[in-house]
Amino acid sequence: MIVELTQTWYLVLAALIFAIGATGLVIRRNPLVMFMCVELMLNAVNLTFVSFGNMLDDVGGQVFVFFVLVVAAAEVAVGLALVVAITRRRQGATADDLSLMRG
């Protein structure tokens, strides 16, 4: 039995990547890896946009991906600078070590 490939499959795949990214961000302690997980989620969103765009026969989905890319690039630049700044002072700091403020 041959299963027909529909656009829905892309959406399911995207949802799976999104969920993996969301889970990974909680599981991992290394801030760099946490950022990577955010990137995974953004990619899942991109895939969703393109698929919806195709299903709606609309270019809007693809335009949106373009902007998400820009935002992701800006976020990474800032995020990594932040990690560099923190690691300089606190060698090997994980996200859990950054818990001075609580309660």
């Binding site: 969301a22 909680v26 599981i27 818990s99 001075l100 609580r102 309660g103």
Partner: peptide
């Protein structure tokens, strides 16, 4: 409610999701 405010960013993310 205080324990929820653990200071650990991962638990915050977990609560958020």
């Amino acid at each position: 409610l205080k324990p929820l405010q653990s200071g650990l960013v991962r638990t915050y993310a977990l609560t958020l999701s």
